[in-house]
Amino acid sequence: MRPLTLSRLLAHCAILSAVLFVVVVIALKLGAVPVSLYGLGHDLLRVLFRQTSQLSSEYQLIIFDIRLPRILLGIFVGASLSVAGASFQALLRNPLADPYVLGVSSGAAVGAIIALVIEPHLALAPAVAALLTPIGAFLGAALTVTAVYFLGLRQGQIDSSTLLLAGIISASFLQAIIMFFMSTLSGGNYRGIAFWMMGELQTQPPHIVSLILRFGFFLSAAAIYTTASDLNLLLAGEKEAMHLGVDVRRVRLVVYIAASLLTGLAVSVSGAIGYVGLLVPHVMRLLFGSDHRILLPTAAFGGAIAVVVADTLARTVVSPSELPVGAMTAIAGAPLFLYLMRRRLA
């Protein structure tokens, strides 16, 4: 017997944060404009000691105004999607669940687009208007996950293949709606199809939205984490969990809302990046086991690492042009999805 202890949890998180740090440094270095590792280290130290005035302006622009914010965005988007994926998998008792596969990301995208469309007509203060997109995305995500859940029921029980079908069909339905919006909304400052369908981290959201993303991530992840040991029991089924003292209804409510919020926030700033929520929790389960008390935090780090790596590849492999980051995650994620599906059918 080797039950989880706090020190083991912290040790694993420390390792992963070290990996994340290395990945971030490499991501800062790589890009269309080459930067030496030495110069980078020098500049990072200068920033740490608040001597920003000594940075060369060109450096400052590339490293600290373009690459670093983009990496930070990737970190929070990746962590959000991955934690959302791990929670959906436990709650729906389906190892193939993921915000993208279930159509939740597309639902969030539709919500965000609708918010963008109605925003100019509402004459809101700019700060409030900036909130409208994340709120729309959250509502879109929450509505989709509710719809998919009920469509996935068969005789009152969640049926995993019905659920997946319901999710995949909802996703393609919602993507058609996105197409419709995109073609009727030509012009204006709406983002492109690639953004909403595949996701990209190229454009920085307004400062306030970034803050909401970070705050929302910590809030939702903390809410989900309070149910971590309940989720462990839910893996064995809702009835079993109930007999072991889990308030299944409360857990379901908390996790659905928080996971929808995570998905909505991520989609409103980066579009629908797929497969992160599928791939990362599975890798973390292989590495650290399926106890959610360790899975959720390691999945957050893993998601951050995965998206930063994918985005770095997306902007370097076809440099000076760029791929959407969602293309990179799909290249890695779709085969894994198929592998897991085949193994499950076997």
């Binding site: 039950p3 998998q89 436990a90 309070t226 309940d230 893996l235 072991l244 008390r293």
Partner: peptide, 22 residues
Amino acid sequence: LLFPSRAWEFVLQGRHPYGRTL
């Protein structure tokens, strides 16, 4: 079970009603 767990992990779940949230 959705994901494999070891027998001792399974038995420890019986202590869940006695634990605080985390």
